[in-house]
């Protein structure tokens, strides 16, 4: 249904199928968004910022690392292990493409619902 709505409006618009599903998953999106706004951050910082558990964050981190979106550097700070993460150029570019696609997708969808309420209009949630 989404594709038909989009296709009927313009050929230039991205189709929902083109959206990067690896980034689109909410937890990974939050993780990438947090890494996008800084140069690098460690595991603990990302746990605090995203509210994810160790296992959850670790699992998403592995998927993003496997896709080449993030660099994971393990080192010792004193005697304690420290895992530092940063977005790769590839990951940064993929996130920017994702942002543009989502913005365009929502910009060109009619904002009013059949009941007349506009709901989430995108200015808050998608204010990139």
């Amino acid at each position: 249904m989404w594709r038909s709505v989009v296709d009927s409006r313009s050929d230039d618009l991205p189709s929902v199928g083109d959206i990067d599903k690896l980034i689109h998953e909410p937890a990974r999106l939050l993780l990438i968004a947090n890494l996008y706004v800084v140069e690098s951050a460690d595991f603990l910082f990302l746990m605090r910022q995203t509210g994810m558990t160790f296992g959850n964050l670790s699992s998403h981190m592995s998927k993003l690392e496997a896709a080449g979106y993030i660099d994971v550097e393990k080192e010792f700070v004193g005697k304690k292990p420290n895992t530092k993460l940063n977005l790769t150029e590839n990951g940064r570019r993929a996130f920017e493409v994702y942002r543009k696609s989502m913005q365009q997708l929502f910009t060109d969808v009619p904002s009013g619902s059949p009941t007349g309420s506009s709901g989430e209009d995108g200015n808050g949630f998608w204010s990139w």
Binding site: L30, V37, A41, G51, G124
Partner: peptide, 18 residues
């Protein structure tokens, strides 16, 4: 889990926590 995807807010929150 936080549900805000406003990049400016995310950067600001990361800074303010410090």
């Amino acid at each position: 889990m936080s549900d805000s995807f406003d990049l400016d807010s995310i950067e600001r929150r990361a800074y303010l926590i410090y």
